[in-house]
């Protein structure tokens, strides 16, 4: 059914065409106001931070109460956290996505799972921090460690990976599943050999975007794995670690007399890390789109 539009009288006396012109200009202005600050922020950070990025800055330990030297432990820590998060969240997330797309019947239990996923996606990051503190740090006695922080970040990342996996699998046409089964493949064989490879680029994109978010988060690691300062690199998953986002928080609010070069340099490194992942994700996506056979 088509609802016929009912127009309000324009509040100013302009012709239809002119009011459209004014309206469009207004919308364009709004878009500019939305987009420009972000581009401005990125440009500003690059401008102020690029000068600090030296080999030494990236590979040396901090010195002089973090007011000099490099940020190696924070970079390495963020990298460890990303790996840890990936290890736990990827297999579980993909499996859960496969379940929802391929195995789950349309029943109560499935609806409950979906509600749980939506809820997980909406839990505030600092609440994840509390949860990680309660479960991993204290209850399982993993302490403030890379392990606790990674597990916490994993659960936070899970909904992203599950949803993108399910979505990518569902976009693969149903007929391929029928054909796979008709040729004597079991359901799992058909999924693994035919459906999953087709969905893979979408899944990988989702994983990268999920990890991107995890890498940039501070609140969930505040009380589960992050430490103010570490004189050496973490040696095991049971060690606490420095991390770029937490380090930025520390040097911009907790350390008086911080040289701004180091501040902006650190922010730039994190930004490059995150935007780099974003770029990779979109490259994978557009390449896959070009190659798709269906």
């Amino acid at each position: 059914m088509i609802e016929y539009p009912q127009y309000k009288k324009p509040f100013y006396a302009l012709s239809k065409q002119n009011s459209q012109k004014v309206g469009f200009s207004f919308i364009r202005l709004i878009t500019l106001v939305t987009i420009l600050p972000i581009l401005g922020i990125i440009a500003y950070i690059v401008f102020k931070g690029a000068g600090s990025i030296t080999w030494e800055f990236l590979t040396a330990m901090p010195s002089d109460g973090m007011r000099a030297g490099g940020i190696l432990p924070a970079i390495v820590g963020t990298f460890y956290l990303m790996i840890g998060t990936a290890i736990f969240s990827i297999p579980l997330g993909i499996a859960a996505g496969i379940y929802l797309s391929e195995y789950a019947a349309d029943n109560r239990w499935t609806r409950l799972i979906r509600i749980a996923i939506v809820s997980l996606a909406g839990v505030p990051s600092v609440v994840y921090g509390l949860f990680g503190l309660g479960l991993f740090v204290l209850f399982f006695k993993f302490g403030i460690s890379i392990l606790s922080a990674s597990l916490t970040l994993s659960i936070m990342t899970l909904p992203v990976i599950i949803s993108t996996t399910e979505e990518s699998l569902r976009s693969v046409p149903y007929r391929f599943r029928v054909v796979g089964v008709s040729l004597g493949g079991t359901q799992w064989q058909t999924i693994r050999r035919v459906i999953l490879p087709q969905a893979l680029p979408g899944i990988v994109t989702g994983i990268i975007l999920g990890l991107e978010r995890a890498v940039g988060e501070t609140a969930p690691i505040l009380f589960t794995g992050a430490t103010f300062f570490l004189p050496h690199l973490p040696g095991s998953p049971m060690d606490a670690t420095m991390a770029l986002p937490y380090h930025i928080y520390v040097i911009s609010t907790q350390v008086p007399g911080m040289p701004s070069g180091i501040q902006y340099g650190t922010v730039l490194v994190l930004l490059a890390f995150v935007l780099g992942m974003n770029l990779i994700a979109s490259l994978i996506r557009s390449r896959a789109r070009a190659r798709r056979q269906w």
Partner: peptide
Amino acid sequence: ANSIKIAGSSSILFILLIFFFLVKE
């Protein structure tokens, strides 16, 4: 198939765990 089914339900477990530990503490 069973592992996938268990993984599929994990979200329910996690949301309950979060709730449980928040309430507990």
